[in-house]
């Protein structure tokens, strides 16, 4: 069947599709060509690179965890919001989708205006507790969560909408409370969507640059994540930037590929 579909495509699409593939692949090929393989190992195991990698993995995981904790309930609310008044529903949906299209630097500024020392919440927080958020590792997690959670919310919402609602009815008829039914039946049913959403969220958080450097700053071991280290490396020594970029690319691809093969296909 897929073969027959392909044969029916208008011929004009083929060269354009080919150009599209080249556009997507060639930059990565160029990156691979320019990798200084001989020094790669030394550059990778240099303290700063490892520090940035560890920080990136840790914060991206934390951001994914936060997105799961907060985003799954939000997705459930969204999936069940069809009966609400249209303005409320649209506002809620806009709240989820705007971070997707917002330039990350703007997101970072917005976070500063909210949680910075002079921020709407940040100022009273600093006055009451002495805690300031910017330039800390939690600030990195907050910035990453802000930009990556919408990916998870939309993926999970789609999965919830696609799930047969009768499963939840059956669970209730067996005496399961709403919470029990949600946790034991609905969530496992949407597990593939949950997982692909979490993977998208993690890779987006891992690649986060603009919001992080604007809101959390850039200090080695505290807030300097892999993308920031790669960007700064470009100013100083392009070789290390290329190697860091390669590292980022490898981590993202490994996560995507391993999860796709193991899990993502089960549900689709």
């Amino acid at each position: 069947m897929p073969r027959r579909e392909a044969a029916r495509l208008p011929a004009a699409l083929w060269p354009l599709a080919g150009i599209a593939v080249l556009l997507l692949v060639l930059p990565l090929v160029a990156l691979l060509i320019r990798v200084p393989w001989r020094d790669a190992a030394a550059l990778l195991t240099a303290g700063e690179s490892l520090e940035a990698l560890t920080l990136s993995l840790g914060t991206a995981l934390a951001a994914t965890g936060a997105s799961l904790l907060l985003g799954v309930p939000l997705a459930a609310v969204l999936a069940g919001s069809d009966g609400w008044a249209a303005p409320v529903r649209r506002l809620l949906r806009a709240a989820v989708t705007v971070p997707l299209v917002l330039p990350p630097v703007v997101a970072g500024i917005a976070l500063l205006l909210l949680l910075g020392r002079q921020g709407v919440i940040g100022a009273p927080l600093a006055a009451l507790t002495g805690v300031t958020v910017p330039f800390t590792t939690p600030a990195v997690v907050i910035a990453q969560t802000f930009v990556s959670m919408p990916f998870l919310v939309l993926a999970v919402e789609g999965a919830l909408r696609g799930a047969d609602p009768r499963y939840a009815v059956v669970a209730a008829s067996l005496g399961a409370s709403r919470w029990h039914a949600f946790r034991r039946v609905t969530l496992p049913l949407v597990a593939p969507g949950l997982l692909s959403g979490a993977v998208l969220c993690f890779t987006r958080a891992l690649g986060e640059f603009g919001a992080t450097i604007t809101f959390a700053g850039s200090f080695p071991g505290v807030t300097r994540t892999l993308p920031i280290a790669a960007y700064l490396g470009l100013q100083a020594s392009p070789e290390s930037a290329i190697v860091l970029a390669l590292l980022l690319l490898v981590v993202s691809v490994v996560v995507l590929v391993s999860l796709r093969d193991k899990w993502l296909r089960v549900g689709s």
């Binding site: 009768r166 499963y167 009815v169 669970a171 008829s173």
Partner: peptide, 13 residues
Amino acid sequence: VGWVFQDPLLFPH
């Protein structure tokens, strides 16, 4: 109140 449908609707997981 137990409820059985035409489809078994066994929880697949």
